[in-house]
Amino acid sequence: MGILEGRALSKRFGGRLAVDDVDFDLEDGEILGLIGPNGAGKTTLFNLISGAITPDSGAIAFEGKSVGGLAPHRLCRLGIARTFQKAKNFPGLSVYDNVLTSAQFGKKGRSDAAAREMTERTIEFVGLGPFLGKSVTDLPLAGQKRLEVARALATAPRVLLLDEVMAGLNPSEVGGAMELIAMINESGVAVIMIEHVMKAIMGVCGRVMVLHHGQKLAEGAPEDISRNPAVIEVYLGGRRA
Protein backbone atom coordinates (compact mmCIF):
# COMPACT_ATOMS: atom_id res chain seq x y z
CA MET A 1 0.00 0.00 0.00
CA GLY A 2 1.28 3.47 -0.87
CA ILE A 3 1.96 6.17 1.69
CA LEU A 4 -0.28 8.61 -0.18
CA GLU A 5 -3.20 7.83 -2.46
CA GLY A 6 -5.56 10.01 -4.43
CA ARG A 7 -8.72 8.67 -5.99
CA ALA A 8 -10.90 10.36 -8.59
CA LEU A 9 -9.83 13.84 -7.52
CA SER A 10 -11.53 16.74 -9.25
CA LYS A 11 -11.40 20.48 -8.78
CA ARG A 12 -13.27 23.02 -10.83
CA PHE A 13 -12.55 26.74 -11.02
CA GLY A 14 -15.49 28.45 -12.66
CA GLY A 15 -15.95 26.70 -15.99
CA ARG A 16 -12.56 25.08 -15.94
CA LEU A 17 -11.72 21.65 -14.57
CA ALA A 18 -8.22 22.29 -13.21
CA VAL A 19 -7.96 18.72 -11.92
CA ASP A 20 -10.17 16.17 -13.64
CA ASP A 21 -10.73 12.72 -12.15
CA VAL A 22 -7.09 12.09 -11.22
CA ASP A 23 -5.89 8.93 -9.46
CA PHE A 24 -2.38 8.73 -8.10
CA ASP A 25 -0.30 6.60 -5.76
CA LEU A 26 2.90 7.43 -3.99
CA GLU A 27 4.92 4.53 -2.63
CA ASP A 28 6.81 4.93 0.61
CA GLY A 29 10.32 6.11 -0.15
CA GLU A 30 9.90 6.85 -3.85
CA ILE A 31 10.34 10.02 -5.89
CA LEU A 32 7.43 10.67 -8.22
CA GLY A 33 7.84 13.28 -10.93
CA LEU A 34 4.82 15.36 -11.89
CA ILE A 35 5.05 17.05 -15.28
CA GLY A 36 2.75 18.71 -17.75
CA PRO A 37 2.40 21.94 -19.72
CA ASN A 38 1.60 25.26 -18.05
CA GLY A 39 -1.87 25.27 -16.60
CA ALA A 40 -2.08 21.46 -16.60
CA GLY A 41 -3.23 21.40 -12.97
CA LYS A 42 -0.02 20.33 -11.25
CA THR A 43 -0.01 23.03 -8.57
CA THR A 44 -3.75 22.57 -8.09
CA LEU A 45 -3.14 18.89 -7.35
CA PHE A 46 -0.56 19.92 -4.70
CA ASN A 47 -3.08 22.36 -3.26
CA LEU A 48 -5.59 19.53 -2.94
CA ILE A 49 -3.11 17.16 -1.30
CA SER A 50 -1.81 19.76 1.15
CA GLY A 51 -5.28 21.00 2.13
CA ALA A 52 -4.89 24.51 0.72
CA ILE A 53 -8.13 23.87 -1.18
CA THR A 54 -10.72 21.10 -0.87
CA PRO A 55 -11.54 18.83 -3.78
CA ASP A 56 -15.01 18.98 -5.34
CA SER A 57 -14.95 15.20 -5.37
CA GLY A 58 -12.56 12.35 -4.75
CA ALA A 59 -10.63 11.00 -1.79
CA ILE A 60 -7.12 11.30 -0.39
CA ALA A 61 -5.56 8.83 2.03
CA PHE A 62 -2.28 9.22 3.90
CA GLU A 63 -0.76 6.13 5.50
CA GLY A 64 -4.03 4.36 4.85
CA LYS A 65 -6.23 6.90 6.63
CA SER A 66 -8.57 9.31 4.88
CA VAL A 67 -7.31 12.89 5.17
CA GLY A 68 -9.76 14.59 2.83
CA GLY A 69 -10.95 17.98 4.10
CA LEU A 70 -8.28 18.39 6.79
CA ALA A 71 -6.80 21.86 7.27
CA PRO A 72 -3.24 22.49 6.03
CA HIS A 73 -1.77 22.69 9.54
CA ARG A 74 -3.25 19.30 10.46
CA LEU A 75 -1.87 17.71 7.30
CA CYS A 76 1.52 19.26 7.95
CA ARG A 77 1.62 17.87 11.48
CA LEU A 78 0.61 14.46 10.13
CA GLY A 79 3.60 14.53 7.82
CA ILE A 80 2.73 16.18 4.51
CA ALA A 81 4.94 19.20 3.78
CA ARG A 82 5.12 21.32 0.68
CA THR A 83 6.99 24.13 -1.00
CA PHE A 84 5.43 26.85 -3.12
CA GLN A 85 6.06 27.54 -6.78
CA LYS A 86 6.72 31.15 -5.87
CA ALA A 87 8.79 30.90 -2.69
CA LYS A 88 6.87 31.97 0.40
CA ASN A 89 9.70 32.38 2.87
CA PHE A 90 9.11 34.89 5.67
CA PRO A 91 11.04 37.94 4.42
CA GLY A 92 10.98 39.70 7.79
CA LEU A 93 12.71 36.83 9.59
CA SER A 94 16.30 35.62 9.38
CA VAL A 95 17.14 32.35 7.66
CA TYR A 96 17.43 30.74 11.09
CA ASP A 97 14.10 32.05 12.34
CA ASN A 98 12.37 30.99 9.12
CA VAL A 99 13.39 27.41 9.69
CA LEU A 100 12.88 27.63 13.46
CA THR A 101 9.25 28.60 12.94
CA SER A 102 8.71 25.42 10.94
CA ALA A 103 10.55 23.34 13.50
CA GLN A 104 8.46 24.77 16.33
CA PHE A 105 5.06 24.37 14.72
CA GLY A 106 5.54 21.51 12.30
CA LYS A 107 5.24 18.81 14.93
CA LYS A 108 3.12 18.83 18.03
CA GLY A 109 4.87 18.81 21.37
CA ARG A 110 8.39 19.58 20.16
CA SER A 111 10.36 21.44 22.84
CA ASP A 112 12.25 24.64 22.05
CA ALA A 113 15.54 22.84 22.50
CA ALA A 114 14.51 20.11 20.08
CA ALA A 115 13.22 22.70 17.61
CA ARG A 116 16.53 24.59 17.72
CA GLU A 117 18.47 21.41 17.18
CA MET A 118 16.22 20.47 14.27
CA THR A 119 16.68 23.96 12.81
CA GLU A 120 20.47 23.81 12.89
CA ARG A 121 20.50 20.30 11.47
CA THR A 122 18.11 21.22 8.64
CA ILE A 123 19.99 24.38 7.68
CA GLU A 124 23.24 22.42 7.49
CA PHE A 125 21.52 19.65 5.56
CA VAL A 126 20.27 21.92 2.79
CA GLY A 127 23.63 23.70 2.64
CA LEU A 128 22.55 27.07 3.98
CA GLY A 129 24.96 26.96 6.94
CA PRO A 130 26.87 30.09 5.85
CA PHE A 131 23.60 32.06 5.65
CA LEU A 132 22.25 31.06 9.06
CA GLY A 133 22.01 34.55 10.52
CA LYS A 134 21.38 36.35 7.24
CA SER A 135 18.13 37.91 6.17
CA VAL A 136 16.08 36.20 3.48
CA THR A 137 16.66 39.06 1.06
CA ASP A 138 20.41 38.36 1.20
CA LEU A 139 19.89 34.94 -0.37
CA PRO A 140 20.34 34.41 -4.11
CA LEU A 141 17.45 32.64 -5.86
CA ALA A 142 18.97 29.18 -5.40
CA GLY A 143 19.30 29.94 -1.69
CA GLN A 144 15.70 31.08 -1.46
CA LYS A 145 14.60 27.80 -3.02
CA ARG A 146 16.74 25.87 -0.56
CA LEU A 147 15.27 27.81 2.32
CA GLU A 148 11.81 26.96 1.05
CA VAL A 149 12.82 23.29 1.11
CA ALA A 150 14.37 23.68 4.57
CA ARG A 151 11.16 25.17 5.95
CA ALA A 152 9.26 22.15 4.71
CA LEU A 153 11.87 19.66 5.95
CA ALA A 154 12.02 21.12 9.45
CA THR A 155 8.46 19.91 9.98
CA ALA A 156 9.85 16.36 9.67
CA PRO A 157 7.55 15.20 6.85
CA ARG A 158 6.96 11.67 5.56
CA VAL A 159 5.84 13.11 2.22
CA LEU A 160 7.36 16.20 0.63
CA LEU A 161 5.69 18.05 -2.25
CA LEU A 162 8.19 20.13 -4.25
CA ASP A 163 6.69 22.66 -6.66
CA GLU A 164 9.29 23.72 -9.25
CA VAL A 165 12.18 24.16 -6.86
CA MET A 166 14.56 24.27 -9.82
CA ALA A 167 12.80 26.93 -11.87
CA GLY A 168 15.21 29.75 -12.65
CA LEU A 169 18.32 27.91 -11.48
CA ASN A 170 21.47 27.61 -13.62
CA PRO A 171 22.68 24.14 -14.66
CA SER A 172 25.14 23.75 -11.79
CA GLU A 173 22.50 24.85 -9.30
CA VAL A 174 20.09 22.34 -10.82
CA GLY A 175 22.72 19.66 -10.24
CA GLY A 176 22.99 20.73 -6.61
CA ALA A 177 19.23 20.66 -6.19
CA MET A 178 19.07 17.15 -7.68
CA GLU A 179 21.63 15.98 -5.16
CA LEU A 180 19.66 17.57 -2.34
CA ILE A 181 16.43 15.86 -3.42
CA ALA A 182 18.20 12.51 -3.62
CA MET A 183 19.56 13.07 -0.09
CA ILE A 184 16.14 13.97 1.24
CA ASN A 185 14.73 10.85 -0.32
CA GLU A 186 17.51 8.70 1.14
CA SER A 187 16.66 10.02 4.59
CA GLY A 188 13.29 8.28 4.20
CA VAL A 189 11.03 10.96 2.78
CA ALA A 190 8.75 10.17 -0.16
CA VAL A 191 8.77 13.01 -2.69
CA ILE A 192 6.47 14.28 -5.40
CA MET A 193 8.24 16.87 -7.51
CA ILE A 194 6.76 19.16 -10.10
CA GLU A 195 9.42 20.22 -12.53
CA HIS A 196 9.81 21.59 -16.02
CA VAL A 197 13.54 20.80 -16.06
CA MET A 198 13.48 17.43 -17.85
CA LYS A 199 17.04 16.54 -17.02
CA ALA A 200 16.19 16.71 -13.33
CA ILE A 201 13.03 14.63 -13.70
CA MET A 202 14.88 11.97 -15.66
CA GLY A 203 17.78 12.05 -13.21
CA VAL A 204 16.06 11.60 -9.86
CA CYS A 205 12.53 10.29 -10.37
CA GLY A 206 11.72 6.61 -10.17
CA ARG A 207 8.37 7.23 -11.79
CA VAL A 208 6.73 10.08 -13.68
CA MET A 209 3.12 11.13 -14.01
CA VAL A 210 1.97 13.50 -16.77
CA LEU A 211 -0.98 15.85 -16.40
CA HIS A 212 -2.65 17.58 -19.32
CA HIS A 213 -5.77 19.75 -19.07
CA GLY A 214 -6.25 18.43 -15.56
CA GLN A 215 -6.27 14.79 -16.64
CA LYS A 216 -3.70 12.10 -16.18
CA LEU A 217 -2.19 11.57 -19.62
CA ALA A 218 0.49 9.01 -18.83
CA GLU A 219 2.37 7.42 -15.99
CA GLY A 220 5.46 5.23 -15.88
CA ALA A 221 9.24 4.98 -15.80
CA PRO A 222 11.05 8.14 -16.96
CA GLU A 223 12.50 6.42 -20.06
CA ASP A 224 9.07 5.25 -21.13
CA ILE A 225 7.51 8.65 -20.52
CA SER A 226 10.18 10.39 -22.59
CA ARG A 227 9.38 8.05 -25.48
CA ASN A 228 5.60 8.19 -25.13
CA PRO A 229 4.17 9.75 -28.33
CA ALA A 230 1.19 11.36 -26.58
CA VAL A 231 3.50 13.02 -24.05
CA ILE A 232 5.86 14.25 -26.72
CA GLU A 233 2.88 15.63 -28.62
CA VAL A 234 1.37 17.72 -25.79
CA TYR A 235 4.49 18.49 -23.88
CA LEU A 236 7.00 19.38 -26.53
CA GLY A 237 4.35 20.49 -29.02
CA GLY A 238 2.75 22.71 -26.40
CA ARG A 239 6.05 24.28 -25.43
CA ARG A 240 7.11 25.07 -28.97
CA ALA A 241 3.79 26.50 -30.08
Partner: peptide, 20 residues
Protein backbone atom coordinates in the same frame (compact mmCIF):
# COMPACT_ATOMS: atom_id res chain seq x y z
CA UNK B 1 5.87 33.86 16.65
CA UNK B 2 2.85 32.35 14.94
CA UNK B 3 1.21 35.77 14.66
CA UNK B 4 4.31 37.19 12.96
CA UNK B 5 4.43 34.23 10.60
CA UNK B 6 0.79 34.88 9.67
CA UNK B 7 1.68 38.49 8.93
CA UNK B 8 4.61 37.43 6.77
CA UNK B 9 2.62 34.88 4.77
CA UNK B 10 -0.56 33.31 6.00
CA UNK B 11 -0.49 30.46 3.47
CA UNK B 12 3.07 29.55 4.30
CA UNK B 13 2.24 29.69 8.01
CA UNK B 14 -0.65 27.25 7.63
CA UNK B 15 1.50 24.81 5.70
CA UNK B 16 4.19 24.62 8.39
CA UNK B 17 1.67 23.54 10.99
CA UNK B 18 0.32 26.80 12.39
CA UNK B 19 -3.38 26.72 13.22
CA UNK B 20 -3.86 30.18 11.80
Amino acid sequence: KALSAIGESEDAAAHIGINT
